[in-house]
């Protein structure tokens, strides 16, 4: 557990523990109060949208307070037309959120995340459209950080790592988009590839963290799963 200002109390462990305990207790109560407070603030922001907008000083303080107490700024937008600052703040905020999501999930999906997952898992309550995502990602891509939208069988995927997919890798993801997984025999039948080619591309995708292996099938053949399946299974 994280320590709070340890040094000040180091000599007197008892005082420290006292404080810590007190702190935990307060934290618990505060969390509850904070929840209510957050709700009220969002309500307030929505109701007094125009007033907040028109007073820069107040707006600045207000938004800082929201940030400090952990209100997701995206919650402050009732819609694209109602915003607390410039017309574009909403889309900038969305861009930032997308960057953060991609960084947090990179080890799980190798830097590939489907629009489905973004919309259904992360932005479910926020009323964000595919168009919003495209707009935000276009903005992010001006920063030349390797962000790009791919299309796999008509589904949009956001790639947030600079390694471009090879044609073979893309074809495998297409196969995965149907079953959730690919395997050497599936690829041989569907793509008419040689065994060697199937195996080497699949292995390569495991190495780069794009596919997960499943060795417990009844066919005794290794399956290679696309983690995008997880979000997909939720929406089905």
């Amino acid at each position: 557990m994280k320590k709070f200002g340890v040094a000040a109390f180091e000599d007197d462990e008892r005082v420290y523990n006292e404080t810590l305990k007190q702190f935990d207790k307060q934290t618990e109560q505060l969390t509850e109060q904070l929840g209510i407070f957050q709700e009220k603030l969002v309500e307030f922001a929505n109701r007094h949208n125009e007033e907040i907008k028109s007073n820069p000083e107040f707006r600045s303080k207000f938004l800082h307070m929201c940030n400090t107490i952990g209100i997701d700024p995206l919650n402050l937008y009732v819609g694209r037309d109602k915003h607390l600052f410039t017309v574009n703040d909403f889309i900038y905020e969305l861009s930032i959120k997308i960057i953060q999501i991609c960084r947090n999930t990179k080890d799980l999906n190798g830097g590939l995340i489907s629009f489905d997952e973004l919309l259904n898992t992360y932005f479910k309550t926020l009323n964000i459209t595919e168009g919003d995502l495209v707009e935000a990602i276009d903005l992010v891509s001006t920063l030349d950080g390797g962000f790009e939208i791919l299309k796999i069988k008509g589904t949009k995927i956001l790639r947030s790592v600079p390694n471009e997919l090879t044609n073979d890798q893309t074809k495998i993801l297409e196969v995965c988009s149907i079953m959730g997984y690919a395997s050497v025999s599936l690829l041989r039948v569907n793509l008419k590839w040689s065994k060697v080619r199937c195996k080497s591309v699949l292995d390569e995708m495991v190495t780069s963290g794009i596919l997960w292996i499943d060795s417990q099938t009844h066919q005794k053949e290794m399956l290679f799963w696309d983690p995008a399946w997880i979000a997909k299974s939720l929406s089905n």
Binding site: G110, Y181, G209, W212, Q216, I230, S233, L234
Partner: peptide
């Protein structure tokens, strides 16, 4: 969670960063 139905979750992943996440 949904990932509990994801078959590879039950196979020890060879890729180290994936395995950490797993």
């Amino acid at each position: 969670p949904a990932i509990y139905q994801f078959p590879p979750l039950f196979t020890r992943q060879p890729n180290k960063s994936i395995r950490n996440k797993q």
